[in-house]
């Protein structure tokens, strides 16, 4: 009788530990991974836009253009670009490299491939975290001797 009570208590403690693992470790990890992947998605989108814009410039043969520059707080000023053949592209870590259009497009394709790979990685990470959560939940269910769903 005493043995059974002790066993029940041990089991209870185990369940508690598992639940804490899910709540304090796995779920924050999952949220974090999803946020990271969203960031990469954002980057991918900006480069996709850039590629499309450069292709547009190329197609239309635009050599000079005007645009509005956001000065902050949604205050815009007019800007003029006298020569659009040279473009400075962000290559990461705060560095911008001067490219011609073709060079820029090459760089962007490389960059896009890398971003796609990163997204894949994050997707896998998210899936594995989800799987772990499922696993631990299953363990808890077995510990409580509940019937399988």
């Amino acid at each position: 009788m005493a043995m059974a009570a002790a066993e029940a208590r041990v089991r209870q403690e185990k369940v508690k530990k598992f639940e804490e693992f899910v709540d304090r470790r796995l779920k924050p990890d999952l949220v974090n991974a999803i946020a990271q992947r969203d960031k990469v998605f954002q980057k991918q989108k900006t480069f996709l836009d850039l590629k499309r814009n450069i292709e547009n410039l190329e197609k239309n043969g635009v050599t000079s253009m005007r645009s509005m520059v956001n000065l902050g707080s949604e205050v815009y000023a007019q800007a003029e670009v006298p020569d659009t053949r040279h473009i400075f592209v962000d290559v990461g870590l705060g560095f911008h490299v001067e490219f011609t259009w073709q060079e820029a497009l090459q760089f962007i394709s490389v960059r896009e491939a890398r971003l796609a790979r990163q997204i894949d990685e994050y997707t896998h990470l998210i899936a594995s975290i989800k799987a772990q959560i499922k696993l631990v939940c299953e363990g808890i269910r077995e510990l409580l001797e509940l019937p399988a769903e």
Binding site: V75, A77, Q78, E80, T84, H86, F88, A104
Partner: peptide, 21 residues
């Protein structure tokens, strides 16, 4: 001049007394 989120063109601000708010 920013061109999208990740690129810039060398350029200049013109009509400096005309702002869109």
């Amino acid at each position: 001049v920013p061109f999208g989120g990740a690129a810039f063109f060398p350029g200049r601000l013109i009509h400096t007394n005309e702002l869109l708010v």
